[in-house]
């Protein structure tokens, strides 16, 4: 899932500027799962915005509305009636949701409330970790299900680099060396030949280095 974190309130209200009728739109997708963009967080943010302005002596009108997934146009149309008279919308979705919201309502001033961090999952009660960098050319079948692009600090395709100390990365001693883990896993599976095979450079144009990503599915029709 997409993992995101809340921006500081000061940044959000600075972006709101003189807007006094604000609608906070939550997203029940990824950001709700990582406890930053769900309906409850929207209520807390709306309350924070109200209190911030009231402390400054400025009454503000806020409301909240929940959207199943802001990255899906069909879920955005049903909230159109809530936007009447609204000066600005604060979106608790990832960067994708914010853009879909802005695209769906061309005259709407949309403020992002979150910083989108990475694609990952939860590894502790309150700890999320990156697992995929969306390179568009997956090699997990060659590396025992451990992604070196994401989990090796140098994104090496042929590792380890020699800088690992005590099975941890030289860049950050709290991060396990991905390539040592890959080696151990391939060894356990009896497939060390995969590790010995030299990996050719990846086609990075398929990932985030190639401009706007597009995926057309010809096997589906409208």
């Amino acid at each position: 899932m997409i993992v995101a974190e809340r921006k500081p309130l000061a940044e959000i209200v600075a972006a709101l500027g003189k807007c006094r009728k604000v609608l906070v739109v939550s997203c029940s997708g990824c950001t709700a799962v990582c406890f930053t963009g769900g309906a409850k967080q929207a209520e807390v943010l709306a309350s924070s915005i109200r209190m911030h302005y009231r402390v400054a002596g400025v009454p503000v009108n806020t409301g909240t509305v929940a959207v199943t997934r802001q990255c899906d146009r069909e879920f955005l149309q049903p909230i159109e009636h809530r936007l009447t008279g609204v000066d600005a919308v604060v979106s608790l979705a990832c960067g994708v949701g914010v853009q879909f919201l802005a695209e769906a309502f061309a005259d709407l001033w949309v403020v992002p409330a979150l910083n989108t961090r990475f694609a990952g999952g939860r590894v502790g009660t309150t700890l999320w970790e990156e697992r995929c960098r969306m390179c568009g050319d997956c090699i997990l079948h060659l590396t025992g299900g451990i992604c070196p692009v994401t989990r090796c600090s140098k994104s090496l395709l042929n590792g380890p680099c020699g800088g690992a100390a005590g099975e941890h990365c030289e860049i950050d001693s709290s991060i396990p060396c991905a390539w040592i883990h890959i080696y151990e896993r391939l060894k356990r599976a009896g497939r060390l030949e995969l590790w010995q095979k030299l990996q050719q450079p990846k086609d990075w144009s398929r990932g985030n280095a190639g401009g706007l990503g597009r995926l057309a599915r010809e096997d589906y029709s409208e």
Binding site: R50, Y53, V55, G57, V58, P59, V60, N61, T62, G63
Partner: peptide, 13 residues
């Protein structure tokens, strides 16, 4: 509380 001098306004309330 600094809020208590400013009237509230809002559909969320």
């Amino acid at each position: 509380l600094p809020l208590n001098g400013c009237p509230e306004e809002g559909e969320g309330k």
